[in-house]
Design a protein around this nucleic acid. Sequence first.
DNA 1: TTCGTCACG
DNA 2: GACGTACGTGACGAAG
Length: 964
Amino acid sequence: MTDTSTAASPVSPAAAPSGDGSSLYLVDGSGFIFRAFHALPMLTRPDGTPVNAVLGFSNMLLKLLADLKAEAVAVVFDSKRLNFRNDFYPEYKAHRPEPPEELKPQFSLIREATEAFCLPCLEMEGYEADDLIATYARLAREAGRDVTIVSSDKDLMQLVRPGVRMMDPMKNRMIGPDEVVEKFGVPPEKVVDVQALAGDSVDNVPGVPGIGIKTAAQLITEFGDLESLLARAGEIKQPARRQKLIDFAEQARVSRRLVLLDDNAPLPKPLDELRVREPDHQKLVDFLKAQGFRTIVARVQAEMAKDGSIADAAAPSAAPAAGAPAAAPAAPQASGEAAPRVRSHSLHAVEKRYELVQDAEALRRWVERARETGVLAVDTETDSLTPATATLVGISLATEPGLACYVPLAHRAEGAAADGLLDFSAAEAPKQIPADEALAILKEVLEDPAVLKVGHNFKFDHQLFSARGVRVAPLDDSMLISYVLEGGSHGHGMDELAELHLAYTPIPFKEVCGSGKSQITFDRVPLDKALAYAAEDADITLRLWTLLKPRLVDERMVTIYETLDRPLVPVVADMERCGVRVDQAALARLSQDLSVRLAEIEKDVHALAGQSFNIGSPKQLGEVLFDVLKLGAGKKSKTGAYSTDSSVLEELAEQGHTIAQRVLDWRQLAKLKSTYTDALQEKIDPATGRVHTAFALAATNTGRLSSTDPNLQNIPVRTEEGRKIRRAFVAAPGHKLLSVDYSQIELRLVAEMANIAALKQAFHEGLDIHAATASQVFGIPLDKMTSDIRRKAKAINFGIIYGISGFGLGRQLGIPPGEANAFIKAYLERFHELKAWMEATKAFARQHGYVTTLFGRRCYMPGIQDKNPARRGFAERQAINAPIQGTAADIMKRAMARVPKALEEAGSGARMLLQVHDELLFEVPEGQAEEAAALVRRVMEGAASLGVPLVADAGIGDNWDEAH
DNA sequence: TTCGTCACG
DNA sequence: GACGTACGTGACGAAG
């Protein structure tokens, strides 16, 4: 983080340049274009020109210039695709696909942007941007100027040395020698040797096979450099590695030439011309306006109005609140009193004032502040990621950007023995408000209807507060807002969003608590570090919310957020907290039984193979089946290994190979044992006998939930063996389990959205839908329907939902793709509306980069414009599937938002436990089950009003298998 | 970590 | 005609 090169100079303690603007910033324009393009969601100008990378680039330059005072900045670009490296290694970067169509028009716009900023644009035919950067960096150093290379490209790390540093504009951090060692395991001057060995698949640098960065660093450290290593390769102990280095010595030398940057490139402009330039604000504003960048235009204009300059003119930092240590500066920060504060994320970055709150009076002041602003960002710190068992260690709050506090509640004395043994030498625990008292003070504001509480992944915090008698409301969740706005284009974790929207890297959790064996729980973190980390989280949450919330309105996504996603926060939090009862003894018995049977099968398989091997190893199994026993040709899969998945084994079994069937049996039982009977037992809370899954609300591309730790959405049901596990999910004494699931919801939605008259009619008539479609497609009367024809129609019906292909359907049905294609053709002729809908959906996806559900949720599909037909085909099938799967998910969310309230109003004691995409599982007091079933069915069937009826079926039992 | 495999909707 | 295929998930053991 610290700038080692300039800070070391006694003349310039700050990052400020020495003398006449002599410090030089070289921006890797080409590298940035690609990274920005892929990191940012697609945006277009009103005329349809894509400009997401242009916006990222402009933002980056603005921020860079704002953070600098009178330094020279130049932007360097690649010229043509080919350069001198291709003369001696034609494959260099040869496999790179053409840039995506949406990126192409942005190259010239980014050059225009550079001009609009009045910065020199440097490029030279036959050389990469990296070579020019290397050359200018060398010359500048020779002229006594400090150099900062602005790039995220690891290939430039070889240039780091005294006076030359890198700044990563995406992560907003400085890269000096330490960071290079962290990345490559060697100091900058040895980076090329490591890269020569490890190669780089992105640039098609071959390296030596089997050697990665870790091994390469170790070898170079041991032997000094590449040539010494190659000369003494015979001394290497590992035989395979030794041989590889001997065989591929020449390839390593070529690789080194490829990665070594040329610092003697011809110059497009003399170094002397790279000087500070006066910005032309009007020109810049005109350019930005032409791109439709309203927000940053406003920023630039505000700066102009303020002081007529883009450059940062922030006042020196205000004193932090009394008793509060200043937060660690997060941005690359020069030390020195006179240095301007480096902005953490924008021209209007606000001073960070973080306060440690250790007494009730101070806490009450924060509550008052929240009442004044009406908004309060909240984040909790715990000693565990499992809310059911977690201790509330502290709470952080933020009331406006930059203004945050941390309230420690259960911190231990610094240096307290981590193993819990008594340690009389340790100091007393730090001063803290008693947790009950703090919660009582906070309860007023957390439950105050006039104060909006903002969290990031608020479900977690909601659960903790709920367990302590506090029902947080009303609330907003910045994670869910991001998910609604940009689901499918990136993740929605706070760190990722901070980098994306605030160009800021939050303090990593690892930095506070360590990792691996030496990891400590948050209650052992010293208060100053805890403050910096926790207050920052609340601060960032508030900043993200400030940024993202208005976009819901602009992009007309308010209803989706407010009716589908936000209401699930308390609902799902309660489901998780409740958990589901699991009979541990039953699982243990199953485990035991499976062990015995697995051992028997294993003996059989080894006997049939004539040798002992690990059946669980696909590699060993493939070798036994195809090399030793020679059961057919084998070989599949991209990595060259034999494929041994169930389809392959089933085929072998059909040919009469007993061993294949036995392996299939073994696989099934092994899976049940490891994933279900064994692992699930570990997840049972011994105090309650219940399992608490976590439902992810912002994880999928389609709007579905997902379940983790453990995943309770994939409990076996399809086989009798598997259902034994399901029977271990039981109702509490005096209760029943109630399962209610939507019947054929996705196919109903196909009929609805594609408006297929015949299919809708069939649903209205309540027919067996697979038989009905079979009848219509193949022209067979219902009373003459055979199970085989019905099976085929069912497969096609599923295929439609998945974005059908002849190949996939053929494989599913075990028929040639040609025959499958004929079925599809017949289907699409009978249901002609479907074809039109699929084409229209794909066209929409191509045009917009996303598809929408019936309710308007967007699912972004980044691959839809891909030039590679395979990847594009994939995206097209996603584009067909996402509206269907996503609409079903939306409907289920509407139902989930309504069910708990409906139950409560009916005076039911039923509790909602689990959601499995089209099914809800409840625990109901005995005697109320039938009533609850009727009510839940009514809510689920009424969750959307469509042209096809929604039907939900209910089952009641003592365990999940019986109820299902 | 990544891969292959397989459990669910 | 390319290219490599049904959609969406999460967890496990093996192996590098």
